[in-house]
Design a protein around this nucleic acid. Structure first.
Lengths: 193, 193
DNA sequence: GTTAGCATGTAAGGAGTTACATGATTTT
DNA sequence: AAAATCATGTAACTCCTTACATGCTAAC
């Protein structure tokens, strides 16, 4: 088990929840949302859409517009898809805070309960703390050279991300649980550069 | 073509160049060197070692020690492997500055010529600039909510990495090409927090 | 004596990339 | 008229992960 690649499904469901889209457009939004690494290829998106369609999570909307242009296949979420989306954003296991999945999960925190949001953020934090301590436990030599410079820089990146997480967690905890606007926005995060 | 997964081969070759090692130990070093993400599994390392052994890049060293403990298969680089390593660290194509490969390449900059080092660093830089401008070109809405907070943070990460690269490039350019110690260490990088 | 860490492997499978294939529409 | 971008797809392949299987050795 321990599936990790469901993150594409989650992202598609999340984007389609905001309104129907066709594959090509979906890919652009996906790349904008999570594409700070390699771009998602058509070779993974289209088969994934077909598969989700077969499973009944999404459905093709019959085209109504002028039949002049090339038919674009527009998808919308089904009721089953909505349920599945709710199910996915309620998960708070390791699959939520790994590198591959955390970003998608965070992006759709607007559809996630406060309690789950906190669990995911804290899970991510301990994941990064673990990584940091692994990196600190470096043997004797290798304290110089390019490898060391790389290590230093990567450790600082992790530390920076940890500070970010801590601020987010503090902000979320400031939300009175169950009271207050359960808004779509993160509670005020103070940025002190 | 455009192979990307050769980075494991490069890393193994690079580590073995510093001295013979067995698989288990190799994995630990590999994880220390590049393991700031998921740990490398035995399922990828051992087959890779076997494959490299078959190709003649590395060779098993017959054990001499006390035959009491479980036989560990210690590998060393062959002459062919050394050639291949030199070949790999002399490459300055896109495969050098992608996310997956850049770290390995950087870690072994000690075995890379100044000219190539600069080309790789500059390639990496334009790769990140490209990503940054892609992220900046965000459509109208999505200017609030968690997705926006994520985007902001990720953009700052890229900017931070760009500053790092710029400093490295400046430092390398400070090296008088062809003169001076072609050392194993990066030329002084000034860190101003 | 039993857990934890050392040590090496294999089989099955997933997820996505690359490269290919096709064609319409819009912009230059 | 050409080039760019819109638009959808498939087949082959690569790399790696997961899960399983085995057995030794040191520490508690």
């Amino acid at each position: 088990m321990t599936r990790r690649g469901d993150f594409l499904e989650l992202a598609v469901l999340g984007l389609l929840t905001e309104g129907p889209l066709h594959g090509y457009e979906l890919r652009k939004r996906l790349n904008l949302l999570l594409g700070w690494r390699r771009l998602l290829s058509y070779g993974s998106l289209y088969p994934a859409l077909k598969k989700m369609s077969r499973r009944g999570l999404i459905a093709e909307i019959p085209l109504v517009g002028p039949p002049t242009r090339r038919p674009r296949i527009v998808y919308e979420v089904t009721e089953l898809g909505t349920t599945e989306f709710q199910n996915l954003v309620s998960q708070a296991g390791p699959t939520a805070w790994e590198d591959d999945s955390f970003d998608v999960r965070f992006a759709f925190f607007g559809a996630t309960d406060l309690e789950i949001r906190l669990r995911v953020l804290e899970g991510r934090r301990s994941r990064l703390l673990e990584r940091l301590s692994r990196m600190e436990a470096v043997p004797r030599p290798s304290t110089d050279g390019y490898a060391a410079e790389l290590r230093r820089h990567r450790m600082e990146s992790v530390e920076r991300e940890l500070r970010w997480l801590n601020e987010l967690i503090r902000a979320e905890q400031g939300e009175t649980p169950s009271a207050g606007a359960d808004g779509d926005s993160p509670a005020h995060v103070t940025h002190h550069e």
